[in-house]
Design a binder for these strands. Structure first.
Length: 427
RNA sequence: GGAGACAUGGCUGAGCGGCUGAAAGCGGCGGUUUGCUAAACCGUUAAGGGUCAAAAGCCCUUCACAGGUUCGAAUCCUGUUGUCUCCGCCA
């Protein structure tokens, strides 16, 4: 969420940001008018409150000194103020809810070094690692390989649940589990993250904090329950909200969390996209990285977080490239996002496997997550960062496809073997 | 699921309908003392909003949340949420 005063004082900046993100700017058209009306109402309401408070004090004094008649006439005077007060309260609530609706629906301002562009075509590659393997046989995709090896069963998943679900069996399930453990071990032991295992369901307040709500309601799986819980679409939601409504001490920052969770996404509006295989599922596994930092460190921490995610691909020997998303392609709450894209031989292209975002104070303001600098100054909002480290299902695909052999088997990368009982290959 | 107790500032914890935005302690910050550290002592220390070019000042709001009673609510009433204890059930 953007700061109300910031929006008031930087309307042009906000309007430009909206345009660059392909957002309509008409939201802002009546901002100035609404805001000054709102403040007028507040000023009058506060004045009346001040008069009421003063009168009430006088009444108390009058009654104590026995001047009951004077007290009674004061009471009548206060009663007269009450009608106007109620009217103003009504207006104030109306204005405040309109302003907060408006603010809640404004996306973050992209950082200055984010390329301006309409969509993913304007994304800019910042680096590339590894080289795509040369195959001397016709490559298969992960569905063919997985089904041939009996480690992937899509048909029965459809029977049991529906489309966009999958079942992993035998070495396929073990490979998934090995990947999870491998990623968590690297991030906790080598990168300094604290592992956390959060709830897989969250309430609406948390979803507001990490900007799934109010705009992206239909992307979630909601629990049919009066409590309004939803299945988490990413561990970013429970983990980033961990310290919401709290004031941290500067010495406790930065905080690094890593969490393995399943993720649940309704994928509404993505009909027909990536329908084959495991690329786009309603349920997938992900190891998430979350950082809470001081404002002045978030850019550097963002680079480090992205490098931490890339490190997993390097250790697995999977070629990838990293792109910085253009203004038109980046997420609602992000100031700057790097996507890491892994090489998929069957598609002869790079596919997203991680998305690492610096949200600045945008989420912290929504969830009221602050810190206080040494010296007892005013609390400030922390900066929140998140990234996949990595999407496990897509890593599974990348391993299966990049390490496939001519005989249909799949070699397990050496670094993964300790996590899968020493297994060297599947098939 | 049943019964009861509770919800106060960064933390612990007092609080009679008006003198309580809130005692006290801890922590933080500033200072005195000290060769240094520690201790001791003194002072200071909630958040959000409005007004203002800005600061100061002034004003408003906030004692879980939402309502209500009252001239006046942390304090009384109702509902909601959460926490704790006991019973039941359960991986």
């Amino acid at each position: 969420m953007l700061d109300l005063n910031f929006v008031r004082e930087n309307l042009d900046t906000v309007r430009t940001a909206l345009r660059n993100r392909n957002f309509p700017t008409d939201l802002l058209d009546d901002f100035a008018g609404m805001d000054s009306e709102r403040r007028k109402v507040i000023a009058e309401s506060d004045q009346i409150n001040a008069r009421r408070n003063a009168a009430s004090k006088e009444i108390g004094a009058l009654m104590q000194s026995g001047k009951l008649d004077d007290a009674e006439s004061k009471k009548v005077e206060v009663a007269g103020l009450k009608d106007r007060q109620a009217e103003l309260d009504e207006q104030r609530k109306e204005f405040e809810s309109r302003m907060s609706d408006l603010l809640a629906n404004l996306p973050n301002i992209p950082a200055a070094d984010v390329p301006v562009g309409e969509d993913e075509a304007a994304n800019v590659e910042v680096r590339r690692w590894g080289t795509a393997r040369e195959f001397d046989f016709e490559v298969s995709d992960h569905v063919d390989i997985g089904e041939r090896l009996g480690i992937l069963d899509l048909e029965r998943a459809v029977k049991i649940t529906g489309s966009r679900f999958a079942i992993l069996n035998g070495a396929g399930a073990r490979l998934e589990r090995a990947l999870v453990n491998f990623m968590l071990e690297v991030h906790t032991r080598e990168h300094g993250y604290t592992e956390t295992l959060p709830p897989f369901m969250v309430n609406r307040k948390s979803l507001f904090g990490t900007n799934q709500l109010p705009k992206f309601e239909e992307d979630l799986f909601h629990i049919k329950d009066e409590r309004g819980f939803a299945l988490i679409p990413t561990a970013e939601v429970p983990v980033t909200n961990y310290y919401s409504d709290e004031i941290l001490e500067a010495k406790d920052l930065p905080k690094y969390f890593t969490a393995y969770t399943p993720c649940f996404r309704s994928e509404a509006g993505s009909y027909g996209r990536d329908t084959r295989g495991l690329i786009r599922q309603h349920q997938f596994e992900k190891v998430e990285l979350v950082k809470l930092t001081m404002p002045e460190n978030s850019e550097e921490e963002h680079e480090k977080l992205t490098a931490n995610a890339e490190r997993i691909l390097q250790l697995l020997g999977l070629p990838y490239r990293t792109v910085v998303l253009s203004t038109g392609d980046m997420g609602f709450g992000s100031r700057k996002t790097y996507d890491i894209e892994v090489w998929l031989p069957s598609q002869n292209t790079f596919r997203e496997i991680s998305s690492c975002s610096n949200c600045g104070d945008f989420q912290a303001r929504r969830m009221n997550l602050r810190f206080r600098r040494a010296g007892g100054s005013k609390p400030e909002f922390v900066h929140t960062l998140n990234g996949s480290g990595l999407a496990v299902g897509r890593t599974w695909i990348a391993v299966i496809e990049n390490y496939q052999q001519a005989d249909g088997s799949v070699v397990i990368p050496e670094v993964l073997q300790p996590y899968i009982g020493g297994l060297e290959k599947i098939g």
